[in-house]
Nucleic acid binder design. Structure first.
Lengths: 242, 242
DNA sequence: CCAAAAGTGTTCAGGATACACCCATGA
DNA sequence: TCATGGGTGTATCCTGAACACTTTTGG
C-alpha cells in the first residue's frame, strides 16, 4: 500500500460468490504466530490517507485476492472500541501493520463476483478460500458479525435490484438464477411461476445457445442486458425480479 | 466531549422532522470568521476514541441540539480525501477542534424526531434551525450531498418499515400519516385506498379521542403499537405500510 | 347554513399461487 | 429405453387502482 497509512481506520470486504448451488464467501488465510494452525479472515487492510474508501476497498481486494472489476458497495461501519478482543489479534495487527493503536474502526464493503475458471485460478494463487456460507466456523476478529450483515444486505438487494446477475456467469440458465434465489433467501420457488415473472422483466436476452454435456434436455442460455437496464432504470419505475 | 479525540473521523447527523405538512431537516449555525453572515451545517463533531460511533452520534446530537431518545441509524461514510475544499472550512475546523489534518472521514447518521412543542423549545435554545427540505440553500462542506443521501434512505425506509411513526406525534390522524408519505415520497395517494391498507396493518390503535378546535369534522386520533410491533416483527413476515 | 375536511364501498384489471405432463438429451 | 431435469398453460384468488357522496364540526 502506498504513502501514509491512517492507523485507526480499515476496510474489510465481504465477497459473495455462487457456484451454481451454494453461496460462498471469500476468506483469506491469516498467519498465526503461536501454533501453526491456519485461521481465516475477511480480505481487508488499513487505509491510505490519499484514497477514498471505495478505492481502498477496490485496491485491497485486488491486492489480496487478484479480483478486480467486481460489484462493490459500502456495507456498514463497525466501531466498537473493544471489537479487537484477543491478545493474539492485537499481536497480529502489530506484526502486519506495525500499528499498536487499541482501536480500529472498520468500514466494511459488500461485494459480488461471478465464480468462473479464471476467478478460481486467480483466487487460488493467493492464500484464499471460498467458504460455504452455511458452514462458517472460526473467522477472526468480529468478521462473523460482518458476514451476517453482508447476508442481510444480499437478501434485501436480491429483492430490490437485479443484482443476481453479478453472481451468475455471463451466460446462465433460468434454473441457475432460480437456484441462486432459493439458496440466498432460503425459500422454495415454483419454477413455472418464476419463468412467468421473468417474461415480464425486459432485460433478459434469450440466446440461441443451449447447455451442452448434460444428460437431460439442455436448457436455453440467457444473458442480462445490463446496458439497457442502466439506461432505462433512471427514467422508469423499479423492476423487481423477485 | 471527553478524553482523546480521533483527528480523522467525525460523525454528522441528518435529522428529519415533519410539521404536519412539510419535511424539515435540522441544521446548526456555524460561526464564520470573516464576515459575520451565518452559515449552516449538519450537527456533528469529531469522535472520541472511547465510544462506538452510534454513541458518538447520540451524544453529539444531544450536545448540539438537546435532542435525545430519537431514532438513529447509520447512513453512509463520506471519505473523499478532498471533501473539505475551501480554506474557510479548514480554518473553521482548526478553530473549532484544533485539528489541522487534511483529511476527515465522516460517518453519517440518519435520524428522525417528532417535532412537538418540547422539541421546538429544546432546539430553539441552541443555534439551530429547522430548514424546509425543498428550500435548502447554502450548507457547509459536502453536507448537501449527505442530506440527499438521507432523503433516499428516508424514502426506502418509509416503504419498507413503519418508520413514519418516528416523525409523527404520539397521537396522530390518518391524514397526517398520509401527508407525510405524500410529502416525503413526492406522490399523491388515494385517501380511501390508504385507509383500507391501514386496516390490514395490525399495530394501529384507534383512540377514543378526536381532534379538537378544527372547523371541520374532527378526525379520530390513532397511536402506533410499537411494543406489539417489535414483538411480532421477529416471528412474522414483513408488514408494509405503504 | 356554509365551508372544510373526515370518513365510507364497489367494481375491475392485473398479479400471485397452485398444480401435472410432455420433451430433449446422454448414457 | 431409461433417467434426468427442461419447459409449458390454466383456473382461482388476492391485491391494487379508480372513483363520489354523506357526515360532522366551527364560524
Amino acid at each position: 500500500m502506498n504513502a501514509i497509512t491512517n492507523p485507526s481506520v480499515s476496510v474489510d470486504i465481504v465477497v459473495f460468490g455462487f457456484d451454481g448451488s451454494t453461496l460462498k464467501v471469500l476468506l483469506v488465510e491469516r498467519q498465526l504466530m503461536d501454533d501453526g494452525s491456519p485461521e481465516y479472515k475477511l480480505p481487508g487492510s488499513m487505509i491510505s490517507e490519499e484514497e477514498d474508501l471505495d478505492t481502498s476497498a477496490k485496491n485491497t481486494l485486488q491486492a489480496l485476492t487478484g479480483l478486480k472489476n467486481v460489484y462493490l458497495e459500502q456495507l456498514h461501519v463497525f466501531s466498537n472500541p473493544h471489537r479487537i478482543k484477543s491478545e493474539e489479534d492485537r499481536r497480529w495487527i502489530e506484526a502486519t501493520y506495525g500499528i499498536t493503536s487499541k482501536r480500529i474502526i472498520t468500514v466494511t464493503y459488500f461485494s459480488l463476483v461471478k465464480i468462473d475458471q479464471s476467478v478460481l485460478r486467480i483466487t487460488r494463487q493467493g492464500k484464499t478460500m471460498w467458504c460455504n456460507v452455511q458452514e462458517l466456523k472460526r473467522v477472526s476478529f468480529d468478521h462473523k458479525e460482518i458476514i451476517l450483515k453482508g447476508l442481510e444486505r444480499l437478501c434485501s438487494n436480491l429483492q430490490a435490484t437485479p443484482i443476481a446477475f453479478e453472481l451468475l456467469p455471463k451466460k446462465f440458465t433460468i434454473r441457475q438464477l432460480q437456484n441462486l434465489y432459493e439458496a440466498a433467501l432460503g425459500i422454495d420457488i415454483d419454477n413455472r411461476n418464476f419463468r412467468k415473472r421473468l417474461q415480464k422483466f425486459p432485460f433478459l436476452i434469450q440466446l440461441e445457445e443451449k447447455e451442452t454435456k448434460v444428460n437431460h434436455k439442455p436448457a436455453l442460455l440467457y444473458q442480462f442486458d445490463k446496458q439497457g437496464y442502466l439506461q432505462e432504470q433512471k427514467k422508469l419505475k423499479r423492476f423487481r425480479l423477485f
